[in-house]
């Protein structure tokens, strides 16, 4: 029986991520996977891997330690975004600590109505760690109550993933005409359009204007494609599902982009983003859609950075007595200072 041939072509980052996943999770008896990279990876550029990429690599049995050693990776706790008023830091983990099911920023807002309290960013352990000015090793990271991503060299990372795929049985080539011999082609580009599956071809596009989003989008698309392309025959139902999920993902990323950069938010926002803005402004809650890319603390940071402030906090935050609330905030700041300055996260 003729082997099913799948080609992954295009930009190095996308090909390496998608190909690595497919080599581990799709390649097998009667199947061939060819990866053709067009152009070189940006040798001097840094790449941010969001926290969820750690589980992606974990499933491939590529440890953070491997990436740290082979691609000079460093743990990161936040990412930087540009807004019309300047750069902002967006943490991967929540500000403060939620309590009795109520997120920290409600308590912080209440405290601010009682007395002067410092900016909410002063209660962010991830931002404090980011600014600590010292490296954190993996052992320390494991003890910290924060999520972390990795910042690494893009070209070296792509190389690690390509080598992984090669060892798993994929054929690596620089012949970009591979697609003519394939039963199915996945083309990876860096763009802001959403991915689309048409006929026997999937065009994957990932944005490069939001730090960390491009690798995440390629990884998500790899999982999705791997689950749905099956034996590479035309599958209308699976195609529709792939395109639905991809469009949703692109829409959520577009929402974050709009929130960060739009001059006129009210007139630029999608209904889903307007929902976030309106509900946050009304009561400090951030509603989510199915399968968000960005985490709640990231939306919170972006909303606040764009001047969207809640008119009120959650009434459930009033259950905490005033004195206890203020004392708790003081303790939180002290703990953050201890963690970041002592070099001992315990």
């Amino acid at each position: 029986m003729k082997a099913k041939r799948l080609s992954v072509i295009g930009a190095p980052l996308g090909v390496s991520i998608v190909g690595a996943w497919l080599s581990a999770r799709w390649l097998g008896p009667g199947r061939e996977l060819t990866m053709a990279v067009s152009g070189a990876a940006q040798t001097s550029s840094e790449l941010l891997l969001r926290p969820s990429m750690l589980s992606f690599h974990g499933e491939l049995e590529i440890s953070p330690d491997t990436l740290i050693q082979a691609a000079s990776a460093e743990p990161v706790f936040s990412w930087t975004a540009q807004t019309p008023t300047g750069a902002i830091s967006i943490p991967f983990s929540p500000y403060g600590v939620s309590r009795s099911g109520v997120e920290f920023h409600h308590y912080w807002q209440r405290a601010g109505e009682l007395e002067d309290v410092s900016d909410i960013s002063d209660f962010s352990l991830p931002l404090a760690l980011e600014n600590a000015g010292r490296p954190f090793n993996l052992k320390e990271m494991g003890q910290l109550p924060v999520q972390f991503g990795l910042r690494l060299d893009q070209a070296r990372y792509a190389d690690i993933m390509l080598q992984f795929a090669k060892q798993a049985g994929a054929k690596i080539t620089d012949d970009t005409n591979q697609e003519t011999e394939a039963d199915f082609v996945i083309e990876c580009v860096v763009d802001v359009e959403s991915a689309a599956w048409r006929g026997s071809r999937i065009g994957l596009s990932a944005p490069d204007d939001l730090s960390g989003a491009e690798s995440q989008v390629f990884a998500n698309a790899a999982r999705r494609a791997c689950a749905l392309i099956g034996d590479l025959s035309d599958q209308p139902a699976e195609r529709a599902e792939f395109n639905r999920l991809s469009e949703n993902e692109a829409d959520r990323i577009a929402d974050m982009r709009t929130l960060l950069v739009a001059e006129d938010l009210q007139h630029s926002a999608s209904p889903e983003l307007l929902r976030k803005i309106d509900v946050f402004r009304a009561c400090g809650r951030i509603p989510t859609e199915d399968f968000e890319v960005f985490l709640s603390p990231e939306w919170l940071a972006a909303l606040r950075a764009r001047g969207v402030q809640p008119r009120r906090y959650d009434r459930m935050a009033d259950r905490l007595p005033e004195a206890e609330l203020l004392s708790w905030l003081t303790q939180l700041r002290r703990q953050i200072e201890q963690i970041t300055s002592a070099g001992n996260p315990s």
Binding site: A227, G230, Q235, P236, E238, A240, E241, D290
Partner: peptide, 11 residues
């Protein structure tokens, strides 16, 4: 339709 084809469940 999606399930009928190859048992995938739209999540």
């Amino acid at each position: 339709s999606l399930f009928d084809a190859h048992g995938h469940v739209s999540a």
